[in-house]
Write a protein that binds this DNA or RNA. Structure first.
Length: 487
RNA sequence: GGUCUCGUGGCCGAGCGGCUAGGCGGCGGUCUGCAAAACCGUAUACAGCGGUUCGAAUCCGCUCGAGACCUCCA
């Protein structure tokens, strides 16, 4: 088998993946800030790293996958307030901050389950790791890379840059940052504008705050990932993932903090997924151009022409490479839906294929191509293209135009099982949802009456049943084996 | 303004020096009482202009256009 190659943002090159501890992989991915329902953009890293998680396990690694929930620490964008984003929303909605956190965490989990995203091994919350974060602040202070100012503690970026290299991940140069850093709250307290808070003193009305030796306050946002990754994965671990928008400053700051607190560079392999765009622009909270996953699943958003199933969304995302931007449109989503259904249908047909005396197709070659694709920096679009090649084969097999021996047929089935279901994490939505309630039985009954009419050449009657069912939104599909339907 | 990406056929999206990407849509066919569905086949492309090379969508330069980060963001 070929080696797994992954692009490393740190080196800007594709690198052969080899874990620090043989057979074991530690992976940390930045999870959501739970102050709103998850939108399409949140699905991208979740699915990208889900595929990596699944594939690493398939390769036989023991993987510890940590994905956090950010429930404290973000400063409000408006410089006047300085409030925690979650606390702000709580005041607005007259709820306890933790109630908001619970509401949206549950919502996130539900969406992830719909998308067939596996749960991470550990899902730590920032609010549950205040002690660890305070310890890290102290450690950085002890090392002399942070200073206290009016109850807040700031990371001394300039000092860090003298001895290490601040900006190595994002390709930034400190001198440039001096001129481009924006004015923020607490700027007067800092030695340099690019210094960032690792502990922030809270206003009295601030709802989420904790006691510390510096002030009643809360940890800086960047700190939580450093603290929690260290706690669960150690001072050095294999993979750190997240969205490209987190590259600077979040991940850059994380590198600096961990370097000082842990005495070494913590992350070996940085992986970043690109953004989902809508009309060519990044989909995001601040632009207000996002569509939540719930809205996609139910079709309740004015830009949506219809509802799109979770597997359609998953397939849509996997059809693009994770490092490319992916543009949302109804047309693209509907294309994805058709493609996904075609794959599922082929899987169904494959179960009915009978073995032949010899093989006219090379399953091994297809397997090799699939393996090459996924190993090449998780090239899921190529992998999917290979699976469509398999779809074509399956359709020719059932028609008797190609043949496979019994062992090759089994091999093809396990190839689909491995890549389509286990690695890409798709599942068949059709079979799961179509057999509940009385309606399906009633439709089947009507179809059998229609079948009878057709047999008697009473086409007026059979067309009447078809047209009226169509009017009710039920699509009839005739084939040699009989009629089927879908809503 | 600084740093960095990207511009591929009607749409979405791979490829990153020579070999058909793929999906959706279109067109042609098979099947069918008809239609739909399904399946098979097929056409259309690399923003523009130069350069390097035997050969460029792929490398280099310029021009035009779009976007990301520099502030919370997946």
């Amino acid at each position: 088998m070929t080696d797994l190659i992954l692009y490393n943002t740190l080196s800007r090159k594709k690198e052969t993946f080899s874990p620090i501890n043989p057979g074991k992989v530690g992976m940390y991915v930045c999870g959501p800030t739970v102050y709103g329902h998850a939108h399409l953009g949140h699905a991208r890293p979740a699915i990208t790293f889900d595929v990596l998680f699944r594939y690493l396990k398939k390769c036989g690694y023991k993987v510890r996958y940590v994905r956090n929930i950010t429930d404290v620490g973000h400063l409000e964008a408006d410089a006047d307030s300085g409030d925690d984003k979650i606390a702000k929303k709580a005041v607005l909605e007259q709820l306890e901050p933790m109630e908001i956190v619970q509401l949206y965490t549950d919502s996130y989990h539900r969406s992830m389950e719909f998308l067939n995203v596996r749960k991470p091994s550990i899902e730590p919350r920032a609010s549950g790791h205040i002690i660890e974060q305070q310890e890290m602040v102290q450690k950085i202070l002890d090392e002399g890379y942070a200073y206290e100012s009016n109850g807040s503690v700031y990371f001394d970026v300039k000092k860090y840059d003298n001895n290490h290299n601040y900006g190595k991940l994002s390709g930034r140069v400190l001198e440039d940052l001096i001129t481009t850093t924006r004015e923020l709250d607490g700027q007067q307290e800092k030695r340099n504008p690019f210094d960032f808070a690792i502990w922030k003193k809270a206003n009295p009305e601030h709802l989420m705050q904790w006691t510390s030796k510096w002030s009643e306050g809360f940890p800086g946002w960047h700190l939580e990932c450093s603290a929690m990754s260290t706690k669960y994965l150690g001072k050095e671990f294999d993979i750190h993932g997240g969205g490209m928008d987190l590259l600077f400053p979040h991940h850059e700051c994380e590198i600096a903090q961990s370097r000082i607190a842990n005495g070494r560079h913590s992350v070996k392999h940085w992986i970043h997924n690109n953004m989902i765009t809508i009309n060519g622009q990044k989909m995001g909270k601040s632009l207000g151009n996002f569509i939540t996953l719930d809205e996609l699943f139910s079709g309740t958003h004015n830009t949506l022409e219809k509802a799109y199933s979770p597997m359609t969304i998953r397939f849509f995302i996997l059809q693009a490479h994770y490092r490319s931007t992916l543009d949302f449109s109804n047309e693209a989503l509907q294309a994805a839906e058709k493609g996904y259904l075609r794959l599922m249908k082929a899987w169904d047909i494959l179960q009915k294929c009978k073995p032949g005396k010899e093989s006219s197709l090379s399953v091994q070659q297809l397997e090799d191509r699939c393996s090459t694709a996924i190993n090449d920096d998780l090239n899921t679009p190529i992998l999917i293209a290979q699976l469509f090649e398999g779809v074509k084969w399956i359709n020719l097999l059932i028609e008797g135009k190609e043949s496979l021996t019994e062992s090759d047929l089994i091999k093809l089935k396990s190839l689909f099982e491995k890549y389509l279901f286990n690695v890409l994490g798709l599942k068949d939505e059709q079979t799961a949802s179509s057999n509940d309630g009385l309606t399906p039985q009633l439709i089947d009954l009507l179809l059998s009456i229609r079948q009878e009419a057709k047999a008697n050449k009473d086409f007026a009657r059979s067309d009447q049943i078809r047209d009226q069912l169509t009017g009710l939104g039920i699509k009839i599909k005739d084939s040699k084996e009989g009629s089927s339907w879908e809503m």
